[in-house]
Design a binder for these strands. Structure first.
Lengths: 194, 194
DNA sequence: GGGGTTCTTGACCGTACGGTCAAGAAATTC
DNA sequence: GAATTTCTTGACCGTACGGTCAAGAACCCC
């Protein structure tokens, strides 16, 4: 979609729309949250929405992309200076938990995106990247003999499953501390890998 | 909702509607799949739908309840005669994978249900039961010294996370064999617990 | 085969939604 | 300060949806 250039003011509006819409989507669901609801909640006219986005779907995809980028950036930043694969895995898990702790509502959006065909491909693209990162570390760990031999992709998927689920159930629903949940996730995953 | 008595023929129709709707919801999403689409796909009039269900929402909740019951029944049946907690956990995992292998599309419905406030409570009720089952086995395992000390609920959640994610990504998306995926899940979970 | 019940039809209704657009306000540029 | 571009308004449009209902078909029981 050909996106026109925006001024600084315009970029801010765009961010405002995305942030507010993300919160509403996470709380009430994508479909039940109407465009009218989003703009009226922000006190602006409907035209504003369609000035910045071509459609409601496009907005959702942009939110999704932003979120995935943010999460990945947090992970990369956390493990940047760590050479040991096991430690990298641990730091990655902790960074993910931390990030989700600060962006609780986005877990809901990822979850929803997986359930609709038109959003699933976009979600998958981001997940493939996260998976590839994890797989690399697992392979390194196998080479070093710290991880039992097994299909690295399956092991990596298992870790993602633990992280996703604990984020949802313990951090998002039960409001537990991301640091403590991360301790449990790290212990479980490292045990599961060895 | 006061449900009237149904004849054998009526019960069959009801099942037919639920099965077909579940398949469509899983494939296209709950909201994008209209009632008109469901009935026309079955070659019946719209009145049939509203004879058996009060609303689209109620249908979804019934599908959800049925699915959760089916899964739990499969798990209970699998572990019925096994006294050892570790083996019970293993058999429970295998039974879950097996069941999801035969009901792939339902994983999507569970996923979606979690994202909308009006369905989340119903989903949660079923999950609490599954969690309680798992917690019991984990506690038994701790008593027996086969599982490291830790919050049983967190460990149980971690297992559910592994199962859910591997079902989605490996069985549903990649079409892998439930038995093999179960092997990996069991290995990862038992490692994570010990 | 008549009378009652269960089930089916599909046109119809009200509404709420995503999206458009002509008109104009603000900001920016010269 | 006029011209131009960026942004905003909100009434409006077409449509598709969930749900209703009067009418009737199918089935069942005596």
């Amino acid at each position: 979609m050909e996106r026109r250039e925006l001024t600084a003011r315009g970029k801010e509006r765009r961010q405002q729309l995305m942030a507010y819409a993300a919160a509403r989507f996470a709380e009430g669901g994508f479909h039940p949250t109407s465009v009218a609801e989003i703009v009226s909640g922000l006190g602006v006219g409907k035209g504003v929405f369609y000035w910045y986005f071509d459609s409601k779907d496009e907005l959702f995809l942009e939110i999704l992309k932003d979120a995935q980028q943010g999460l990945r950036r947090a992970q990369q930043h956390a493990i940047a200076d760590e050479p040991d694969p096991m430690r990298r895995i641990e730091l990655g898990i902790r960074a993910s938990m931390q990030w989700f702790g600060e962006n609780r509502h986005l877990a809901n959006l990822f979850q929803f995106a997986a359930t609709e065909e038109r959003f699933a491909p976009a979600l998958r693209r981001g997940q493939e990247i996260a998976l590839a990162d994890a797989v690399k570390h697992v392979k390194d760990g196998i080479v070093q003999g710290e991880i039992r031999d097994g299909e690295p992709e399956v092991l990596a998927h298992a870790m993602l499953g633990v992280i996703n689920h604990l984020v949802r159930e313990l951090i998002h629903v039960r409001g537990e501390d991301p640091g403590e949940v991360a301790d449990a996730a790290v212990a479980f995953c490292l045990g599961g890998l060895s």
